[in-house]
Write a protein that binds this DNA or RNA. Structure first.
Lengths: 132, 132
DNA sequence: CGACTATATCGACAGTTGTCAATATATGGG
DNA sequence: CCCATATATTGACAACTGTCGATATAGTCG
C-alpha cells in the first residue's frame, strides 16, 4: 500500500526568546498540549480558536503563503493587493488580523510596510493538532 | 536557551486506504504542500480554509478533544452536551460540521450516535502549516 | 511648504455563524 | 402498536465577518 511519510521536526522556543524574535512579533508559544492527549480547557480552546480563525480564511492563507515564499521572506502591501485581487484596504485589514494573531510581523521602512512571517508561528499553531 | 523539540511522524495513506479507514470517514489527505515553500493556489486555499474553519471554534475544539480523550476514543451526543454546556441541537450542529469536514466520523448504534476522531485528520490539517 | 504615494482607518452593507426553542425522525421496550 | 428516549432538522435572531469606497495619516521628494 502506497504511503507518504512526513517527518516533521519542530523546535519551539521554551523560555528566553532572543531579541530578534521578540522584535519580530509576538512570541509563538503553543497555547496548549495536544488536543488528543488531555481535553483542552474552555479558556485554552478560546485562545487557540482565536488564532486558528486568523488563518482559517482563503485570502489570509494566500497572504501568509505569498509573504513566506517572497524574496527575503517579506512583502509590502503594494506587492500583495494584485496577487489576491482585492482592494488595498481589504488587504490591510487581513494583514492586521494576521499581525494581531502573531502570525505576521510588520516593520515600516519609509512609506512602505513590510510584512514577514513570525518564525515558528505556524508550527505553534500546528503543535496542538499533532498527537505527540 | 531552553527548547522543546517536537518530532512528528505522520503517515498519510496515499492510494488504497483500507476498508476500516474508508468506513471511518473521509480519508484525510493534506490539501496542499507546505504554505511556506510554494505559494498556495487560490482553490487550494479555499479548500484548506474550509477545513480550518471547521476546527477554528472553541466549542468544536473542545468536542474534538473530549471525543479523542474519551474511553474507547468515542462519545455519543449525550456525553457531550453537559461538558460543553450547550443545548443538544447546538452540539449536534457542531458535530455535523466536524463530520462533514472529515475530522470526526459518526456511527449509529441503536438510538445512540457515536462520534470518533478520524485517524490522521488533525495531522493532515497540521501538515501544510509545518515548514517541511 | 506642497504635491505625491503608501498605508491605515472608518462607515456601510451583505453574507455567514452560533445559538436556542420547537419540531421531526428514528429506535428500542413494553 | 404506542410510548419513551436519543438525535437531527428547521426557523429565527443576534453577532460577527469580509468587502468596498471614502477618507485620514504619514512619509518622500521637489
Amino acid at each position: 500500500m502506497g504511503r507518504v511519510v512526513i517527518v516533521t521536526i519542530i523546535e519551539l522556543p521554551l523560555v528566553s526568546r532572543d531579541a530578534a524574535e521578540a522584535a519580530a512579533g509576538v512570541a509563538p508559544a503553543a497555547c496548549c498540549g495536544p488536543l488528543t492527549r488531555e481535553t483542552i480547557t474552555a479558556s485554552d480552546a478560546e485562545v487557540f480558536a482565536r488564532t486558528l480563525k486568523a488563518i482559517a480564511d482563503p485570502v489570509r492563507l494566500r497572504l501568509v503563503s505569498i509573504v513566506a515564499a517572497s524574496e527575503g521572506q517579506e512583502a509590502c502591501v503594494c506587492d500583495l493587493t494584485e496577487p489576491v485581487g482585492l482592494s488595498q484596504p481589504t488587504v490591510s485589514h487581513h494583514l492586521k488580523i494576521l499581525t494581531e494573531a502573531g502570525i505576521l510581523s510588520r516593520s515600516k521602512r519609509g512609506t512602505w510596510a513590510y510584512y514577514r512571517l513570525v518564525p515558528g508561528a505556524l508550527e505553534a499553531i500546528a503543535a496542538p493538532l499533532v498527537s505527540v
